[in-house]
């Protein structure tokens, strides 16, 4: 059978497409890099659990993201249950579409200066649905913070650089949505929310203490 020039053109285009698919498959089948502990847990990160634990879970999160809030009880339960075997770090990744995500991150850092980062973290998530600047400003009364010191750090955006560093690190590590979790250096792809507990429990089992 003799092919028309049109048929030949189609075949050529199809071959080029298959070639593109082949290159794509090659590029995408490379294993995801495993990040160093020091990259994911830089000095100054707020952590819970045992800092020496072999298993480390790092979350890039946004205080105004509903999915982040829905994961919070699960993360809290995991840390409580595995206090000695797990270290958990919260890192900031405020998304542009959430206007209060950055102020909330600044507020959490301002409270962190007074050793109350995690109390503020929980307070923000508890109030996420009605989150406002007033709620952030009223934190000192609720959490027993030195009001003046807190407000100064918050309003002066004292920890903006730290938040920016978290965000740029996140981008560098391939974070494109929140929450994104890294478990022992590997980015987790969570299909259902229970996958997080499963992955963490399994890693702890393989890395006791």
């Amino acid at each position: 059978m003799k092919l028309s020039s049109e048929s030949k053109l189609f075949i050529a285009i199809a071959v080029i497409t298959v070639f593109i698919i082949g290159i794509g498959i090659m590029l995408m089948s490379r294993p995801a890099p495993v990040l160093e502990r020091s990259q994911l847990l830089p000095a100054g990160s707020y952590t819970q659990g045992n800092k020496e634990a072999k298993t480390y879970l790092v979350e890039f999160s946004d205080f105004q993201c509903p999915a982040c809030r829905s994961f919070q009880p699960q993360v809290k339960a995991l840390v409580e249950k595995n206090k000695d075997k797990l270290v958990f770090a919260y890192r900031h990744f405020p998304l542009a579409q959430h206007p209060l995500a950055l102020p909330a991150a600044l507020a959490a850092e301002a409270a962190g200066e007074q050793e109350k980062f995690w109390e503020m973290h929980d307070y923000i998530f508890e109030n996420q649905e009605s989150l406002s600047e007033e709620i952030l400003l009223s934190a000192p009364e609720k959490l027993g913070l030195d009001k003046e010191k807190y407000l100064k750090a918050f309003k002066d955006k004292k920890y903006q650089d730290k938040i920016d560093k978290d965000t740029s690190d996140g981008r560098k590590f391939g974070v494109d949505a929140t929450p994104t979790f890294f478990l022992n250096g590997k980015k987790l792809d969570l299909f259902t929310s229970s996958d997080l507990s499963k992955s963490v429990e399994e890693t702890i089992k393989n890395n006791p203490k």
């Binding site: 998304l95 579409q97 494109d176 949505a177 929140t178 792809d189 299909f191």
Partner: peptide
Amino acid sequence: IRQSSIVCVNN
């Protein structure tokens, strides 16, 4: 299939 994240303009 791989349950990996999709590059997207938003989430």
